[in-house]
Amino acid sequence: METEVQQNQAQQETDPTPESAVKHLLSFALMIGLTLVAFAAVMLEVVPAGMVIPFILVLAVIQVFLQLFTFMHLDLKNNRMTVTFVMMGLIIGAICAVALFVLG
């Protein structure tokens, strides 16, 4: 077990790109922005009536993807299995929610 850690350490010490807080602060700003837009769209009625709900849902989905791929350190290259399962969870979740809404 110790050798494994040392091997990974060696690999990462030669990896020249350290993580920065700036990327996360930028993500955060975007998320705040998306949230503000969603609240504004509903409270200030700036979006036409039929479009509001799809609009805020799209904003929510964008924010969720931001969370997944920045805050939660999910990346498409090395975590293919994880990404697949998370997407499957979202899809099956969407099916459940929509089915219960429509058929319930």
């Binding site: 969870g89 099956i92 319930g104």
Partner: peptide, 18 residues
């Protein structure tokens, strides 16, 4: 997290229905 996503989705669906 994947499992909990589906769990919450079911509660969302129930909420939307009711």
């Amino acid at each position: 997290i994947g499992a909990e996503t589906v769990l919450f989705a079911c509660l969302f669906g129930t909420y939307l229905a009711l």
